[in-house]
Amino acid sequence: MAETATGGASRQAQGPDATVVGLVLDVGEGLLSAGAETERVEDTAVRIANAYGDRDVDAFAVPTGLFVSFAGGRATGMRRVRNRGMDLGRLADWNDLARRVCEERPPAATGADWVRQVTARGEPYPAWAAPVMAAAGNAAFTYLVGGRATEAALAALSGVVVQAAVRGVGSHFTRRFFHAAAGGFAAVLIAAAGAHVLPGVRPVMVVTGGIVLLLPGLALTAAVRDMLTGDFLAGAARSLEALVTAAALAAGVALASSLLLSHVLGGGPL
């Protein structure tokens, strides 16, 4: 923590409390790693520092990091954000925490306790919820785009398979990339197998329903909202993230399709 004396008589020259700096960075990191828009992160960092009496704060956030300058630049905090997932529950949790800190202004050490509580919070839904909801969502979307009951059932099956396989994959981006690719691959395999066994099943419907929950919807939405606030750096980064996830999904789909087209389906269109 750098503290430099200024020439002025005011004892404002003392740098900010290290605990406050830590709290601001922890909350900012939490929000970013849950997938928050960067403007929200910058705004929250400034508000928390304001709540502790620091009126001269500036924050700069990108999806992979956060910089905050305290007390007119007498101290600067930086946090690199490595583990990024898209977790709406944690997003709401960190948002609640930030709001509580600003309203109650607890001693910074108490704030640090709250941070530990949020970090330690477990999964909000039981383990069976993911495959069940994936099945329901896939089937519903298949129906929505005009699929029949058998096609919806196959899409539901691929949802269960994909979720059961990737439970615990974690949020590291490389793993999420393979998650999307494996999901696309599995959806096509199940669609092709189903079409082979059951007459009248259109594989295209099964695959469309099977991959809908793997689409980078959250990254794309956050990208739009980032650009909406004029934050083009974050918007571009997130658009790219959405694009890469979509490409991974496409790779899985394309690989399975090209493998199957000649062998199982005799060259007919999927």
Binding site: L88, G89, A130, A136, A139, A140, L144, L213
Partner: peptide, 16 residues
């Protein structure tokens, strides 16, 4: 079906 799709995604992303 539309509502179900949304709720399914919300649960998979740990929405409150």
């Amino acid at each position: 079906a539309a509502a179900t799709t949304s709720v399914a995604f919300a649960v998979l992303r740990n929405a409150p």
